[in-house]
Nucleic acid binder design. Sequence first.
DNA 1: AGCCTAAGTAGACGATGTCAACATCGCGCC
DNA 2: GGCGCGATGTTGACATCGTCTACTTAGGCT
Lengths: 159, 159
Amino acid sequence: MLREVARRAGVSHNAPYRHFADRGALLAALAGEGFRELGERLRQSAPEAMGEAYVAFALAHPQRFRLMFGGLVPLASDPALATASRQAYEALLQAFRDRGDIGDPAAAAAAAWSLVHGLAHLLLDGHFRQATREGTDAARFVREVLGAVRFVGAAPKRA
Amino acid sequence: MLREVARRAGVSHNAPYRHFADRGALLAALAGEGFRELGERLRQSAPEAMGEAYVAFALAHPQRFRLMFGGLVPLASDPALATASRQAYEALLQAFRDRGDIGDPAAAAAAAWSLVHGLAHLLLDGHFRQATREGTDAARFVREVLGAVRFVGAAPKRA
DNA sequence: AGCCTAAGTAGACGATGTCAACATCGCGCC
DNA sequence: GGCGCGATGTTGACATCGTCTACTTAGGCT
């Protein structure tokens, strides 16, 4: 894989070593690029459209998405990764705080992220192939799924 | 990795080839085992507890979970995988149908799966490390997140 | 000019997945 | 009882991969 990129770049194997410490560093750099672009896309979206934008990014760049979230590049391996991810989450959290009608904005933001993240993953893995084949396109399916949940408004009742 | 398992089994390299066609077949078998066990756990859970059970499985067997959903073993590579996954989803779908108060059970089931799946993935990746570190344990966090959403009851309004 | 650094190249090493050929053991069958 | 066969395992080879070390080359600085 490392030698492969060198070959495609028309350059000798381990020329990459002049630019990256090792294979992991290359992948971490690619993942970081992905996080930055995803964050940009989300920031350009209206709060209600963030979910669709998130899934659209994953479907448009499957390999990149898998690299970012596949566990191959641990978040801790590069502090920049962690902060990029944290910043995206903070933006989402702030959007929920701004709504004002949410009981537990932190839990709601985490749930929203989980929802779109899981949907993206399951779509990539083909687990919804049956559901998306009969319908027209994936975007419509995504809208239907995201439309099936509401975030609770009342303060969470203590058990 | 293949040679590694042979070594650990105290057996010579590519003894595994007597039991699996290649590396992918071994991984597919492991993933299938995971799907079967996950399905069993879910079937043993009450409908409301399925979400927590799903996440608990992922946190208890991170590598297995990643193998099952990491894209390394494509669903299509083994028909048994696809049917195992399909069956688990069907059970969830039926649970939502049985509730009777759900407008679009298919969308709700997909959303529920996405929610717990994404939550499991993000927890594994450490994206909620900040949120889970201050709280006591992960299980409580999971309950809070899952408690932050409701599934819509009215029939979805056509746009 | 002289030199230092960035960038690239060549070659080697260990490890891996896979293939082919050979060995061994246990079982059923005449 | 002897025989043969299939399942299981072993050895050795091959191409490829990631990584290390050493050497070369090109550009910019003083």
